[in-house]
Write a protein that binds this DNA or RNA. Sequence first.
DNA 1: CAGAAAAAAGCGAACATTCGCTCGTTTTTT
DNA 2: AAAAAACGAGCGAATGTTCGCTTTTTTCTG
Lengths: 229, 229
Amino acid sequence: MNLSYETFLQEFEALVEDEWSCLFDLYHEKLNLKNRKIATKKFQTIIECVFKLSQTKGFQAMTLRDLSQESGISMGGLYKYFSNKNQIAEMIHAAMIQMAETCLKIRQYRHQDPVFELNELLARHVFLSERLKKWFYFVFMECKSLDKDLMETIIASERFMENAIHQRIVDANQQGLSQCTNPDFVSAMLKVMLQEWYLKSWKYQQKNINADQYVANLLLSVYQLIQVK
Amino acid sequence: MNLSYETFLQEFEALVEDEWSCLFDLYHEKLNLKNRKIATKKFQTIIECVFKLSQTKGFQAMTLRDLSQESGISMGGLYKYFSNKNQIAEMIHAAMIQMAETCLKIRQYRHQDPVFELNELLARHVFLSERLKKWFYFVFMECKSLDKDLMETIIASERFMENAIHQRIVDANQQGLSQCTNPDFVSAMLKVMLQEWYLKSWKYQQKNINADQYVANLLLSVYQLIQVK
DNA sequence: CAGAAAAAAGCGAACATTCGCTCGTTTTTT
DNA sequence: AAAAAACGAGCGAATGTTCGCTTTTTTCTG
């Protein structure tokens, strides 16, 4: 494995610039926003406040007056950047899906070695969720606030990830590279450890464990769990 | 390992009877409830409706009018069984802590073999969360609705579990029974797989995997991850 | 380049609705 | 007949949303 978080970050910035311009590109027409510089700046303050407030009290319990006070933007001012409260959650989800697909799907080329592919898949996911920590956390915790279409997109992409992991394990078995007797269970385990990284990020920050070290631990476990020869 | 879900269930019923009488015992004085038979029955319908509604829309978004309609109990009638909305969440948490402590702590005797102890610990937790699926799910998803004291109790018990796992691994290493190079990571992994069982229970129900089979998979992974000799 | 006119962004009091909760009354149980 | 449980319309507070107005930014023009 040679991919590091640092090189991933460069790739990320080349592909999607940053979160706020991604939001602007997706929604500036629908919201009649003209000035890109102002709008991206505002998006940043608003969404960061949303993350902060929903981390402590949850999105549903967060009041628009809370958000107004925390961000320093008036009620009427806020409504220039979304047309109703639920759209905030919708925008966050849509932008995250957009960024994730740009960063992960573009690398879905088939390599000859399924074990290598599995490593690559896991590492990329950890790095992406490290870069978009708050976004992943929000999407996981607040998916209740979504309409059905978006929710199904989220579930589908989760399932896609687990299937991708599962397939690599089965392939490795068939090619005689590994001896995994319970691929279903192991792929569930690996997927859950991808979630652990962004759901409990404070824990690993506290223990001084960075994304690269986490990936190293994860890959060691892979070797043990699928019994690589 | 010889503990099965069936034998665990017998133990459980001997220790705590059931959820609803546990709730009654904890709160009947504070709420002035006299008739045990009526009250436990009402608790059951109310709490089961709370689980149902908060699974689909979340506890915060659940209205007491929703709850009234779903349970067939009037607004005023509901308020005989709690004194404010947040107390519902509080009661659920308190009762679950009560039941979990009764079922887990009573078995914290030290055995000579740390690997055996680890197995026992993991199996018991899976079985308990299987019996109290909805409770565990609710506590995980809705812990935001809690006051600080209860929240810290929850966090403490989580930490206790992870430490207990960690300690058994370290002990096994020291006794030369295993060779685990990353006990921190592995114990996080095992703890997360305990959560997986109740957070994604629908998934395993769909795949026809029961608690005993899940435990078997879990213990196999333990052997691989801590390199038992 | 200056300054006026137009457009965009920002403001916050006011509105309708909804929610948690109460309480006087009725029904059921003891 | 007394006590406990259940009822449900109604209250005040809080919330999402709107809209007429002000401020800031951009564009146009002499």
